[in-house]
Design a protein around this nucleic acid. Structure first.
Length: 352
DNA sequence: AACACGGGGTT
DNA sequence: AACCCAGTGTT
């Protein structure tokens, strides 16, 4: 049997039942594909259901505010996906008459849709013959064909895309694309795959040469950086001072609190010597340390310290990203997970 | 070509 | 701790 037929055969026996596999609606497939970028199916599934429920059509999506979209996205990470989806929904409504494109070249022009996602939506929705190349496909091809070109190098991408398109089962691109990705996710797993039961092991280069654990090859990325964020939680009656984060750093357009970043962990006495604190909050500002937390991102280890100050009035009208909101409406704002955890697990319990 | 961008699961 | 996940956009 051919490589393609083996994969499809395996898929029809072993596939999971996932909601986005029951439709050819480009809008619904787009929702699932963006949510699943760098995200496991189990983590993305509840978000997919939530988005489809809140925005049954692309027109509903476009009518929402970016804040509403980011609130639904809260906790999923890579928030540019949410911002780009919002922009794309409005482009589809304004330039495609609300009909979501299902052809590769149209899709590629939209925000947040790259080569992988354009191939996925077009093949699943219109049956266009475009091979998907995601992390699963890189791994299956590298192992089966014994390719040691680094998958995250430009040469590797070129090589794997060319091979993937040669292999594409043109009689049913959608079925084949689903099959190879599912095979990579479930059978040809990153760590300790059960090659003994694999239907492709007889012809698999990596299995026959004991290279399963060496392939695919990936270039190592930069080390994690430590960052020290000192947050100032300012309260005035039932109001709390929030900041909407701006471009150029993590958590763009999400809400947290005014903060000062330091080079190392500092206590309040040391922090008070930082001139910015007194400039921003006044000589008499007397914060008390409430909590320290550590939060791990892919490229950063963030050390957070929360200082709270009750009953102190500031005038921050000069800084448009700062706003007072009532505690009752605080949870309507999209927040980074670590901030949301701090608010619900710590701050609200200390409001007496 | 290299890096930034979240959060969670597995080994 | 290291690696990876239905990757994309920017520099």
């Amino acid at each position: 049997m051919t490589f393609q037929n083996e994969l499809i055969n395996w898929y029809q026996i072993n596939k999971r039942d996932l909601p986005w596999r029951h439709t050819k609606d480009a809008y619904i497939i787009w929702l699932s594909e963006i949510i699943l970028q760098q995200t496991r199916v189990e983590q993305g599934l509840p978000y997919f259901n939530k988005f489809l429920e809140n925005f049954p059509t692309v027109t509903d999506f476009a009518s929402a505010s970016e804040t509403q979209v980011l609130k639904l996205w809260q906790g999923l990470g890579y928030y540019s996906r949410g911002r780009n989806m919002h922009a794309t929904a409005q482009i589809v409504v304004n330039h495609y008459d609300g009909i979501f494109p299902n052809l590769h070249d149209d899709l590629l022009k939209l925000k947040g849709i790259g080569e992988y996602t354009a191939a996925a939506i077009s093949s699943f929705s219109s049956g266009e013959a475009r091979a998907v190349v995601d992390g699963n496909v890189f791994r299956v091809l590298a192992r089966y064909f014994g390719i040691n070109t680094p998958i995250n190098s430009p040469a590797g991408k070129k090589e794997f895309f060319a091979l993937a398109n040669e292999l594409l089962y043109v009689e049913d691109p959608a079925l084949y694309n689903q099959a190879i990705m599912e095979f990579g996710a479930i059978q040809c797993k990153p760590k300790s795959p059960n090659c003994i039961i694999c239907p492709l092991n007889q012809s698999c280069f990596a299995f026959n040469n004991a290279l399963v654990n060496e392939l695919p090859v990936k270039i190592r990325k930069a080390e994690q950086k430590h960052r020290f964020l000192n947050y100032f939680v300012c309260l005035n009656g039932d109001d709390i001072l929030v900041r909407q984060r701006q471009a150029g750093d993590i958590w763009q357009h999400l809400y947290d609190f005014p903060s000062i970043e330091t080079e190392a962990e500092v206590d309040w006495n040391s922090l008070a010597f930082v001139s910015n604190v007194k400039t921003a909050f006044g000589e008499k500002a007397n914060f008390t340390h409430l909590l320290s937390k550590k939060h791990i991102l892919t490229h950063q280890i963030i050390h957070l310290r929360f200082f709270v100050l009750k009953n102190y009035i500031f005038n921050f009208s000069k800084q448009k990203e700062l706003n007072w909101v009532s505690l009752g409406k605080l949870d309507e704002l999209p927040q980074p997970k670590v901030i949301h955890d701090f608010i619900t697990e710590c701050l609200l319990n200390n409001m007496e």
